[in-house]
Amino acid sequence: MRGFFAFTKKEFREHFRTYRIIILAAVFFIFGMFSPLRAKMLPEIFSSLDMQGILINIPEPTYLDAYSQFFKNMTQIGLIVVLLVFSGMITNELTKGTLVIILSKGLPRHTVILSKYLVAVILWTISYAAAAVLNHVYTVYLFNQVSGEGVLFSLFCLWLFGVFMLAVIILASTITQGNYGGLLLSAGILILLMVLNMFPKCQRFNPVSLAANNAGLIANTVSVSDLVPTVWITVGLTALGILLSIFIFQEKQL
């Protein structure tokens, strides 16, 4: 257990000193603040432009626009940033060989995987929560109203998708070799899942649904019960991914 804490401390230190924490914090703060602001400003930007007599009718934006802007940012650039930031955490150690001494000290191999995953999940949770809170506060401030029971569940779905994605990254980087293997394979898996999500029959079983229906959940065009099975499937796949990573890493020749 002591080894687990020591390695976890090292992970936090590493994320901090290799700029990963700063990147996550900056990006998610920007998204949290910028999304409602952009929704609010959009009509005004248009009206300030000289449209040469063409009338564009933009309805007055509501909190729904703010939230859909937030989810759009998070599911696009946000998840790409998560992928970039975390895809190196195992590959870097394996290509450089920094784990050799650590493992020769008797640190169990599964500890490496579990500790890295735990730290990644914590960082994702904190930065995502910060972004969500900021976004909510700004939305309330700018639009004066937010309603809908879907908000929390919708936020939870995207969070869970992030947790799933981190498991995919861990698995991909234990399987592959080389500097960018983990990054490319994770990206490949996610793209494949997105493609599969274009078929309505797959959507129920596909974790990507958790990141595709967030705005709909808030606008009540998608009901919570539609996504509950997907939530459980995603939880299962995440656990499976981590177990598989531990198993593969255990057998890996260093």
């Binding site: 002591r2 080894g3 804490f5 020591a6 390695f7 401390k9 090292k10 230190r13 590493e14 000193r17 290799t18 450089k96 060989g97 920094t98 050799v100 001494i101 650590i102 020769s104 000290k105 008797g106 640190l107």
Partner: peptide, 23 residues
């Protein structure tokens, strides 16, 4: 190891502390 690899962002005593805690 023949080419020992460390965490470049650590100071020597920090590295030894990590090793000690793991041991």
């Amino acid at each position: 190891p023949d080419v020992p690899e460390f965490y470049g962002y650590m100071r020597p005593w920090e590295y030894l502390q990590l090793c000690g805690e793991i041991s």
